[in-house]
C-alpha cells in the first residue's frame, strides 16, 4: 500500500530521531565511565538518549494525530492499545515475580522495546479480528 503523507512524515521523523538516539548513546558511552556515580553531570549526559526516545513517542503521537484516514487511525490505535495492555501486564507480572522470587531483575530500559514488539502483536490481533493488520511502519 502506498504511504500517505502522515506515514511519510512519521518515517522521516523516526529516521532523524534514530540517528540522534544512536549518536547520543555513543556519546554517553564515550563520556561516562563504567559504574560512574550518579552525579548531576553523568545524569545529564545519560538523559540525552532519553530525549530521543521521548522524541519517538512524540513522533508516534503526531502520526496518529495527523492521520486523516479514520479507519487506518482506528487500526493504529488498536495496535497501540494492545501493545500498552501487553506491556503493562508483562511489567506488572514480572515485577511481582521479582518481589516474591529470585528471578533476574529486568532493567526498565526494556519497557519501550517490549511495547514496540507489542505493536506487532497488535497488528496480528487486527488481522485476526478485523482481517486487516493495518500499515506496516
Amino acid at each position: 500500500m502506498a504511504q500517505n503523507p502522515a506515514q511519510r512524515r512519521y518515517m522521516r521523523r523516526m529516521v532523524v530521531l534514530s540517528a540522534a538516539y544512536i549518536a547520543a548513546v555513543m556519546l554517553a558511552s564515550w563520556l561516562i565511565p563504567d559504574d560512574a556515580a550518579a552525579t548531576p553531570l553523568t545524569v545529564a549526559i545519560a538523559l540525552v538518549p532519553a530525549l530521543a526516545t521521548s522524541g519517538f513517542i512524540w513522533a508516534m503521537a503526531r502520526y496518529v494525530a495527523e492521520l486523516k484516514d479514520e479507519y487506518v487511525r482506528m487500526l493504529e490505535i488498536r495496535k497501540m492499545l494492545v501493545a500498552t495492555g501487553l506491556t503493562l501486564a508483562l511489567a506488572s507480572g514480572w515485577g511481582i515475580l521479582e518481589l516474591f522470587t529470585t528471578v533476574p531483575r529486568v532493567q526498565l530500559f526494556y519497557v519501550f522495546p517490549v511495547w514496540c514488539l507489542g505493536l506487532a502483536v497488535g497488528s496480528l490481533v487486527n488481522k485476526v479480528t478485523i482481517g486487516d493488520g493495518g500499515p506496516c511502519l
Binding site: M1, D69, E70, Y71, D132
Partner: peptide, 22 residues
C-alpha cells in the same frame, strides 16, 4: 472520498462503521 482503499473495503464489507462526518 480522500480515504484509503482499505477504508472503502472495510466499510463496504461491514467491518467498519464510518464516523458521521465520513
Amino acid at each position: 472520498l480522500e480515504v484509503s482503499r482499505q477504508s472503502v473495503n472495510a466499510i463496504e464489507t461491514g467491518k467498519y462503521d464510518p464516523s458521521l462526518p465520513l
